[in-house]
Write a protein that binds this DNA or RNA. Structure first.
Lengths: 202, 202
DNA sequence: TCTTGATTTGACCATCTGGTCAAACTCACG
DNA sequence: CGTGAGTTTGACCAGATGGTCAAATCAAGA
């Protein structure tokens, strides 16, 4: 394993290649379905070489998840209490939809983990995520109190946004099977925009 | 393997026990994450004994999925062109939500399969499911043409219903992590009802 | 160039896993 | 009962898989 110094050029390149490969493999097959050999092959390394950079399969997975959590939660972080309520929420939804389109692997990585009970990120959910959501729910509630948006259950509002936007990435095969050749995201944006505009208009 | 006659008392009991156990294990760990030993143990059988009733792990999985597909699609089947549009749709949504609550294992079984690209039910999606959805979309479109419900993209409407209702089962850990002690389904029903009533009111 | 730490790998290992098989056991029925 | 079909299991196997290790190779600074 590399020493505890500044990472060399090679270390940087290989660790990045491994994480990139791991994202592909884990998001497509889940933790258990992914094999170290597969990740190594995709990263262009031999298995022992891969294990020279990460101590175990689990370590790669953990680093991937924790490294991506910030990215994943950034849009919600950006929800600004001082902005225009309706525009803030619709912008959040649009960013989430865009992430589903542009980062489907990341979405499926989390989806895989969650649907199997989140054995490896349960803590992050109950702490970081809950804290962030609770905070933003306060904002939403305040907006409702001020009559800026319609009063709905704020937590379920949040869940619905996640469900709707991530559905396109997580269940992409199903969406594609039904839409055929058509671009899955064609029309999604106006649809969710209308949906939440109608829901939240006081 | 049992002969091709009428199933004996023991065959009925054991096959049922195996499928029940398999539903638990597959829905919790996905196909690859599940082991035959685990299923056998949960069914109260030895592994060779389990494999006396089913030729392989894959066969159990296949039978589970195809056996549950009808159950899973029944609510959509029931959407009645001759009923009251708004009530029909809201009833469909409510039934889906109820299934998410009462049959979370089934929901996660399909979710697991879908998020990993549906390698084993791709055909059913492109045929049975697509056909059913296309048919119901025709109904929805007709209702929109008649001005009975607001005009929205009918396929995205369908996706949104699935996403929203199944979210509670598929990502139950996340919902629980955020809501804490509170019952995840508390308030979900009125929320989705309001959501779709507002969206679809012309 | 030489040296030393960084990097890479072939060979190997223990364990897990899906599946097989022959032998043993059980049950229903004549 | 006795018997043959139905049921169960211990022992076993081959391949996959996560991980180890010593030896070989490489890279960069003195």
């Amino acid at each position: 394993m590399p020493k505890d110094r500044a990472p060399t050029r090679i270390q940087k390149k290989n660790r990045a290649a491994i994480l990139e490969a791991a994202l592909n493999v884990f998001s497509a097959h889940g933790f258990r379905g992914a094999t170290v050999d597969q990740i190594a092959a995709e990263a262009g390394l031999s298995k022992p070489n891969l294990l020279y950079y990460f101590p175990s399969k689990e370590a790669i997975h953990t680093e991937l998840l924790s490294g991506l959590l910030d990215t994943w939660l950034a849009p919600l972080h950006d929800l600004d209490e001082d902005g225009d309520p309706m525009e803030e929420i619709l912008a959040y939804i649009q960013r989430k939809l865009q992430m589903s389109q542009e980062l489907p692997r990341e979405s499926r990585l989390f989806a895989n983990e969650l649907v199997q009970g989140a054995p490896r990120i349960h803590e992050a959910l109950s702490n970081d995520l809950k804290e962030l959501v609770d905070d933003k729910v306060t904002t939403l509630t305040r907006w409702m109190d001020q009559g800026k948006i319609a009063r709905v259950h704020p937590y379920h509002l949040m869940f619905s946004i996640w469900a709707l936007t991530q559905h396109y990435a997580d269940f992409e095969v199903q969406v594609r099977a039904i839409l055929g050749e058509e671009d899955p995201f064609e029309g999604a944006d106006p649809f969710v925009d209308t949906l939440y505009r109608k829901l939240l208009t006081p």
